[in-house]
C-alpha cells in the first residue's frame, strides 16, 4: 500500500454526463453476457438463418435464371410485391425464436444478478440515477436483440444492392431501412421492458426463463382459445408476441390479416400499457429496492 498516494482534489477535466456514463453500464453488461458460451451458441444459431438468407440473395443475384427460382422457392422477395410479401420482414420474424430463447437466458445476467447480489448499490452510488441505470441496461438488451434481428436484416439489404450493382435499390427502397429499424425498436422497447422487469423481479435464470416462455406461449394459447370461444378478435390482443408483430408490421405498411388493420391501434395501446407497467415496476423497485430484499 502506498498511503502517500491518497489525497483528494477537484477534477479539473470535463466529466461526461450520466447519460454517457450509462454507456459504461451497457458495455459492462454486454461483456458479462458474452462471457457465457451459451450466448455465443445462440448468436451462432441466429446467424445460421442469416447465412441462409445471405446465400439465398447471393444465389438469387449471381445465378441468372436459377437465382429467381431459388428466391421464389424460398418465398423471399426484396421488393414488397402484390401479395405484400417482404423478405426482410420475413427474416426478422423468423429470428423471433432465437430472440426469445436468448432473452430468456439473458435476464439473469443483464439485471437479475444486480438485484440478487445487491450490485445495484454500486450503480446508484456512482452518479447515476435509476433512469440512467435502466437506460444502460435497456441499451444492452437493444444491442443484443438488434444483433440478431436489425443488424443482419440491414446487412441483407446492403448485400442485395451490392450484388445487383443496383445502388438505386438502396435509395428507392430506403423505406425498408426505416421499417427494419421501426420493427426492431418495437421489439427492443417491449421485450426490453418486460425482460428487465422480470429479471429484477425473479433474479435467477431458471425462474426468468420459465416465466418468460410461459408469458409468451400461454398468452398465445389463451388468446386463441378465447377468440375461438367468443368469436371476438380483440382477445388476440392478449398475445403479446402477436401484438409486437402486428405493430412491427405497421412499419412495413401491411398486416398479416385484414382484422389486424383494426387491431393494430389496440395492439399498440396494449404494448404501451405493458411497457408502462414494467417501467413503473422497475422504477418502484429501484427507488425502494431495499424493501424487496
Amino acid at each position: 500500500m502506498q498511503i502517500d498516494l491518497a489525497h483528494y482534489h477537484r477534477w479539473e477535466g470535463r466529466l461526461r454526463g450520466p447519460w454517457y456514463s450509462a454507456l459504461a453500464v451497457t458495455r459492462a453488461t454486454l461483456r458479462q453476457v458474452f462471457r457465457r458460451k451459451v450466448f455465443w451458441i445462440l448468436l451462432a444459431l441466429g446467424m445460421l438463418n442469416f447465412l441462409l438468407y445471405f446465400a439465398l440473395i447471393y444465389a438469387g443475384t449471381q445465378l441468372p435464371g436459377v437465382g429467381d427460382r431459388i428466391m421464389e422457392r424460398f418465398d423471399f422477395t426484396v421488393h414488397p410485391d402484390a401479395q405484400r410479401r417482404n423478405g426482410y420482414l420475413r427474416f426478422m420474424e423468423q429470428q423471433g425464436l432465437v430472440v426469445m430463447v436468448m432473452m430468456a437466458f439473458a435476464g439473469s445476467v443483464i439485471i437479475g444478478g444486480d438485484f440478487r447480489q445487491r450490485g445495484v448499490s454500486f450503480y446508484l452510488a456512482h452518479g447515476l440515477s435509476p433512469w440512467h441505470y435502466l437506460w444502460g441496461k435497456w441499451l444492452a438488451v437493444a444491442v443484443l436483440l438488434g444483433s440478431v434481428t436489425v443488424l443482419p436484416a440491414l446487412v441483407l439489404f446492403v448485400e442485395y444492392g451490392m450484388f445487383t450493382s443496383d445502388f438505386h435499390y438502396w435509395w428507392e427502397n430506403k423505406a425498408v431501412v426505416v421499417s427494419v429499424l421501426g420493427y426492431g425498436l418495437v421489439m427492443a422497447v417491449v421485450l426490453g421492458a418486460v425482460l428487465l422487469a422480470l429479471g429484477a423481479w425473479l433474479r435467477k435464470t431458471v425462474p426468468i426463463a420459465i416465466t418468460w416462455t410461459s408469458l409468451f406461449l400461454l398468452s398465445a394459447a389463451w388468446s386463441e382459445q378465447l377468440r375461438r370461444t367468443t368469436g371476438d378478435p380483440h382477445w388476440r390482443l392478449l398475445n403479446l408476441w402477436r401484438d409486437i408483430r402486428c405493430v412491427g408490421r405497421a412499419f412495413f405498411g401491411f398486416y398479416a390479416r385484414r382484422e389486424d388493420v383494426q387491431l393494430a391501434p389496440w395492439a399498440a395501446g396494449a404494448l404501451a400499457a405493458v411497457v408502462l407497467i414494467c417501467v413503473g415496476y422497475l422504477w418502484a423497485k429501484l427507488v425502494h429496492w431495499r424493501r424487496w430484499e
Binding site: 466529466l15 454517457y20 456514463s21 459504461a24 454500486f122 452518479g127
Partner: peptide
C-alpha cells in the same frame, strides 16, 4: 468500470 460510471 466503476470509475467510468463517474463520467471519466
Amino acid at each position: 468500470f466503476m470509475v467510468q460510471l463517474h463520467g471519466y
